[in-house]
Design a protein around this nucleic acid. Structure first.
Lengths: 228, 228
DNA sequence: GTCTATAGCGCGATAGAC
DNA sequence: GTCTATCGCGCTATAGAC
């Protein structure tokens, strides 16, 4: 049972030697995607330990053994799900560069994080659940890829501060606030729904209001001039 | 939560007639507390489904059957843990009343939420994990006790807004932001630690800096005059 | 490549000795 | 009240027929 491995090493499409036709390849990929999507839902609903491969197979419309054929173990499966998520996640944050206008960059970042919570709540929940429970598998990701990205972005914030574009806030904590404030609309959606008096999930306009509110409070709270 | 096969609402200290059993009573309560504490740790580490009663018993220093004697099922046990947590939680937020100074009340609230994250991270994690996974058991709590409290507090915020003490922000979303921004230092502590370059857990001064930053951004972001 | 049938194990819960 | 010993279930994972 190996834990602390790093990302980016396993490329699936390169490893099948047989003379498979393009059609079979497509079928295989389609099934893999079906399984991954079902797995994301099930892991989000009941967590890693609570998830059963048979529930995942059922939701994907396949027999259980098929799941184990494509992803040998349950651990392999959640790793694949997380890899999917993290790739999306990291790519969504490239608006924060030194030459950008701070108000526009942060607004855009917050807006896209909220949209992410609205459109892919399960992805957010799977990630949250793993982090919550100490996520030995994610340790490497957090301390390498994520830390590097954040170090770069905190550098941008510091430049903005030096140039007098915003107040001297601790940049890491600013990111913690933006991440948590936006992700809570996915991770804790049932709490949000309960407090707002929604039946089951928050409504689309709740997400809009959230984006507007978080943007306002961050911009004004950091002393950033709105717009340009 | 029921203890014995005896039915009904058994209050612990009220139902034993003889004073001679006080020593036994104390032993029983001590063991219950031991189990609850161990359960909180284990649930926080691996979630409800991942937790095993034998792991809890082991951490509490008791045989497994003893755990089942005090708390018949694993579900009874997590309900007891959550009840413990929720009581603490709700009581911590009574500083927000209309006659208070907004800056002082919100500062104090944020400070106590952060201290809570620092001192009882496991409690926060157990709650978060349940909410994350839809928490059917907590549905009632969220829609009744919590909603009532929040309705009352949003009323206070609205009064402050009417009196021109702060900007017109959507009060529910303000609470979502405060909750998420403070709880993230408990729930996602390993992410915070990784980004801040800490070895395992965030350091005490990280929590202090968090409290100061969140307070500043909330007060300034809501247009509240600091201090009085 | 796919699926049925099952091995093998660890779990929650309990019976019953003390 | 306490704990040992165990039962029965449901899980992950796989062997082996198609």
């Amino acid at each position: 049972m190996k834990k602390n491995q790093t990302f980016g090493t396993s490329n699936k499409s390169a490893r099948r030697p047989s003379g498979a036709t393009a059609g079979r390849e497509a079928t295989r990929l389609a099934k893999e995607q079906k399984i991954l999507q079902a797995a994301e839902e099930v892991f989000a609903e009941v967590g890693f330990a609570g998830a059963t491969t048979s529930a995942i197979a059922c939701k994907a419309g396949l027999p259980k053994a098929n799941v184990h054929y494509y992803f040998r173990t349950k651990e392999d499966l959640i790793h694949a799900v997380l890899e999917n998520i993290l790739t999306l996640w990291l790519d969504s944050a490239d608006v924060i560069v030194e030459t950008a206008d701070p108000a526009e960059a942060l607004s855009s970042y917050i807006r896209s994080k909220i949209e992410y919570s609205r459109d892919r709540p399960n992805a957010s929940k799977v990630f949250a659940s793993e982090i919550l429970h100490g996520a030995p598998y994610l340790e490497g990701f957090l301390r390498n890829q994520l830390k590097d990205r954040v170090d770069f972005k905190t550098g941008v914030i510091k430049k903005w501060i030096e140039r007098g574009l915003m107040d001297p806030v601790p940049p890491e904590h600013l990111f913690f606030l933006i991440w948590s404030a936006t992700q809570t609309y996915a991770d804790f959606d049932c709490q949000v729904a309960a407090v707002l008096g929604r039946r089951k999930k928050p409504k689309p306009e709740d997400f809009d209001q959230a984006a507007e509110f978080i943007t306002n409070i961050v911009l004004k709270g950091c002393g950033i001039k709105s717009g340009k």
